[in-house]
Amino acid sequence: MTTPPDVAGTAALAICESLMLALNDHKILPEREIVGILRDAASAHENDDGKDGHAELHRAVAQLINIIIAGGNSVRRP
């Protein structure tokens, strides 16, 4: 069986999303805190200096996180 590309990244995203939903469902973290965490993560990648040679990857990661924020995937919104 061949492992599809970026299986680790996809698994990590699914796990993190489930954790954020559970934290919100159990009223451990409110939606604004979860969105703040996501914004911080996006900002870290947006502000990356690209010295590691992965500037395109960092831009893509920031873009994906911002799409998740806009889509509400990690918080259950009515």
Rank of each mutant, 00 (worst) to 15 (best):
V61H: 09
I67D: 13
I15V: 10
A55D: 11
L23H: 06
L21F: 04
K27S: 15
A60S: 13
P4W: 06
L29E: 05
T10M: 06
D49F: 08
A62S: 12
H54D: 09
I69N: 02
P78M: 08
S18K: 15
V61G: 02
A55I: 15
C16T: 09
E33M: 10
T3F: 05
I28C: 09
L23D: 10
M1S: 14
I15L: 14
D52T: 05
D25N: 05
A41D: 04
L29A: 14
K27H: 15
P4S: 07
I15K: 10
A60C: 01
S43L: 10
R77D: 09
L29Q: 08
L21D: 01
A8F: 06
K51I: 11
D40Y: 05
D52A: 04
A22I: 03
E17D: 00
H58Y: 00
L13Q: 11
I34R: 00
H45Q: 03
D49I: 07
L19T: 00
E31S: 10
D25E: 08
A41R: 03
A11M: 06
E31Q: 13
A44S: 11
T2L: 11
M1E: 10
P4I: 04
L19E: 05
I37P: 04
I37W: 06
L13R: 11
H26I: 04
D6G: 04
L21E: 00
E33W: 01
T10L: 11
S43K: 12
M1K: 12
L38V: 07
H45E: 05
N73F: 09
S74W: 15
C16G: 12
P78K: 13
C16V: 08
I67R: 14
L57S: 05
V7M: 14
T3Y: 10
I34Q: 02
A60Y: 04
S43V: 04
L23G: 02
P5A: 02
E31T: 08
A42R: 00
E17P: 01
A12Y: 01
L38S: 04
